[in-house]
Design a protein around this nucleic acid. Structure first.
Length: 532
DNA sequence: TCTATAGGCGCG
DNA sequence: AAAGCGCGCCTATAGA
């Protein structure tokens, strides 16, 4: 417990693993506003090059565990530390090891190069873990009937278990007819490839992009079939049965699941919900949804962290890509997008690779930052985000490859492989600084937002009959890298929208101070709830 | 029979 | 037919 408790503010709880503790607290009606997640913090500090001596942290290998948390329904009794741990690998949940680890982390922070940044990062990471657990508890308001309607519109009536939808079968017949092969298999890539070749379509793979290049009557229905097949298998009726209960879709978020600091997900495909199905995401009666996403978050982050005034100026209007066109670097918005993405991903060939050098002239500071990050990676070095999350070092296989290529007897194949691997790792570190800092911006955004949302009074609201207290007030229900959705009583929607905006401004300030970079939101309040 | 991998595609 | 980053999930197929 820190200063917060003494000053009358709510305490910052220090605990082993938010995902293991919070669900039970929420179920018991306890709201936790701030915490220090030892597992997530360990992962950051143990790797951060801002921490000069990481030996003690590295030695505490029990804190390396990627926690595997039991489902809420099977969660053990609160404070039963022996059994709180979930799957096979979880961090220690007892008090003593937690205190020892907290001590190690405080020591590391005290010696860190830029402790303020790291402290903020740990707070944001921990707040993200709280937000994730709260979102899992709340669930995404999901209209299964609307989802079903969308499926029927595309696929035809719901088929029997294990059967393919009628529309898929019909389209498959069209493909077979066009191929002149009544027995062609469309679900097996190798078989489909053979069937396509037999019909005179010369492709190396069956991917959508390559197929689209060819003119043949079978192509259009085949692409349609693939589309339907994807919808049916990934987000069809089986998905509804498995993931939607009582009007809620409950995804499983994994905060810190990506080395860059982005969240991952496990189960339910929360990070891959097709846009096609977003209409099924629908507020409860009397409630509405406030949705917001940041236009071109990553290039704006790059402009801010590199202090590139020209790129910041390009993003001054809402559309950064339009700003890049106006600067004269490229001709069209499409080119601007391809060039900017290519710059951040390390494109070297094709349209993208051709356009990137133009950016180097117009935005030298921004390009220097990513080029430097790439150069470090190619040498096997480590790079860091704005707040001090550092990239992993290359593995032993990578080092051996580089070593072999510089030995006297190295073949040109050795050299090729080593160069390829070096470039690949350079692209990773190039992107790491941008993607990772963008993730920090987004974490700061939701961390600030959930504090603001907690201030909304639940009075006069048609409250849910049961469930965590925060569900009676506006609350986050969805987060995906650069976008959020808040479920809110209708009468609060305007204020919530303002809070979302304000939190974005705060996030920008916290990360980049007074840098002249805007993070404009595409912000919407859903017009209606069909159930009303 | 079970598990691991690759191909493909959804998201940012 | 991805180029050019980061993910997860599904299916078919190869391998143990």
């Amino acid at each position: 417990m820190d200063q917060g408790a003494r000053s009358g503010v709510r305490p910052r709880w220090v605990w082993s693993d938010t995902a293991a503790w919070l669900p039970q607290l929420l179920a018991a009606g306890v709201r936790v506003m701030r915490c220090h997640d030892l597992r997530l913090s360990h992962a950051i500090l143990q790797r951060s090059i801002l921490v000069p001596d990481r030996r003690a942290l590295a030695a505490a290998i029990q804190w390396e565990a990627e926690s595997v948390v039991p489902a809420i329904a099977t969660a053990p009794t609160l404070f039963d530390a022996e059994t709180v741990s979930g799957g096979s690998r979880s961090v220690p949940h007892d008090l003593d090891p937690a205190l020892e680890e907290f001590e190690r982390q405080q020591t590391a922070l005290a010696a860190a190069k830029d402790p303020g940044k790291l402290r903020f990062l740990l707070a944001a990471e921990s707040a993200g873990a709280l937000a994730a657990a709260e979102m899992e508890a709340a669930g995404v308001p999901w209209d299964a009937a609307e989802h079903d309607r969308l499926l029927e519109e595309e696929l035809g009536p719901r088929p029997a278990r294990g059967e393919k939808p009628s529309r898929m079968l019909a389209v498959a017949e069209e493909v077979r007819a066009a191929l002149g092969d009544p027995r062609a298999s469309l679900d097996s890539a190798p078989k489909l490839l053979r069937a396509l070749r037999a019909a005179g379509i010369d492709v190396k793979s069956t991917s959508r992009w390559e197929l689209a290049e060819h003119e043949h009557p079978a192509i259009a229905p085949l692409l349609h079939y693939k589309k339907l097949s994807r919808l049916h298998t990934a987000n069809g009726w089986a998905w509804i049965d498995e993931w939607v209960r009582e009007g809620r879709y409950r995804p499983v978020y994994v905060p810190g699941g990506v080395v860059t600091g982005r969240w991952a997900s496990s189960g339910g495909g929360a990070l891959q919900l097709p846009r096609q199905l977003r209409p099924a995401l629908r507020a409860d009666p009397g409630w509405t949804l406030v949705t917001a996403d940041v236009a071109q978050l990553e290039p704006r982050v790059l402009a801010a962290m590199s202090g590139d005034r020209a790129m910041a100026a390009a993003g001054a209007a809402k559309d950064l890509y339009a700003g890049v066109v106006d600067s004269g670097a490229v001709q069209s918005r499409d080119e601007a997008k391809i060039a900017v993405l290519g710059a951040m991903y390390g494109a070297t060939t094709g349209d993208s690779g051709r356009l990137v050098p133009r950016l180097r002239r117009s935005y030298p500071a921004a390009m220097a930052l990513v080029d430097h990050a790439a150069a470090l990676g190619e040498q096997g070095g480590v790079v860091s985000t704005r707040l001090g999350r550092s990239s992993p070092e290359p593995d032993n296989a990578w080092r051996e490859l580089q070593a072999r290529a510089s030995m006297p007897g190295a073949t040109s194949r050795d050299e090729d492989q080593a160069r390829r691997a070096a470039r690949e790792f350079g692209r990773f570190t190039r992107n790491f600084v941008v993607q990772g800092t963008a993730a920090e911006w987004a974490l700061s955004w939701i961390a600030e937002l959930r504090l603001q949302l907690a201030k909304f009074e639940p009075a006069g609201v048609p409250a849910p009959a049961s469930g965590p207290v925060f569900e009676r007030a506006p609350h986050l229900v969805f987060f995906l890298h650069d976008e959020i959705i808040v479920h809110t009583p209708q009468e609060c929607a305007t204020e919530v929208a303002a809070a979302v905006e304000a939190a974005a401004v705060t996030a920008g300030r916290r990360l980049f101070g007074s840098a002249p970079v805007d993070f404009p939101l595409d912000l919407k309040i859903a017009e209606r709830s069909v159930k009303d």
